[in-house]
Amino acid sequence: MKYSFYLFLVTISFAACQKNTAVTTIPVTSATVKDLVADTIIGTSLQGQPYGANKFTFYSLESNKIIASTDSASTKWDLAFKGTTILTNGGTSGPGKGGAFVYIGLYDGVTAVPADSTFKTDNAPTYAITTGSNKGWYVYDGMNNLINPIPGRVLMIRTANGNYAKVEILNYYKGGVTPSATASDAIKSSEQRYYTFRFTYQPNGSKTF
């Protein structure tokens, strides 16, 4: 298993417009994560159903890195990935303040969490980031047995610590490239569950990015 991260740090200066003399510079993290494994296929059942090890990969948006699964009961992680399921650190999933909702629109267009929006929390078996084809972030192409992230879907995230982030899932396959519709099932199976996503994390607690 190989992970590669391409990290861009964009630093935007926020001149705090208080009367205080101290000027704080809080970096907003924007990054693209490639090939984050999410319980990749390790075998095929007797019925022919491919399966993984049933393990989530925990990720911290704040520190932009994978968190060991031994810390799954902590507030160190913000998102957890297993197959097409994405957890937030809150509700039935973790001890944090996490929540989320799926926003329809463009990633760059979301400069702030819309004022009237409501964050949902995980309440297994339903999750803040709705699971199921064409319900949350992806559509399952049953004809070709492929998972395609739906364009124009932004995951609005409240992190474990109660900060805000936006996430766009770009691809579900290794190397960020969806196999051809006509690729073999072996390829479709072995190359799936590798997330490529981009995110912007606002560490100062505000709802603007």
Partner: peptide
């Protein structure tokens, strides 16, 4: 303007 597609980077854009 409710239909999106992706650019070369995989980023969503309006179709």
């Amino acid at each position: 303007q409710k239909v999106y597609t992706r650019d070369a980077n995989g980023y969503s854009r309006l179709m």
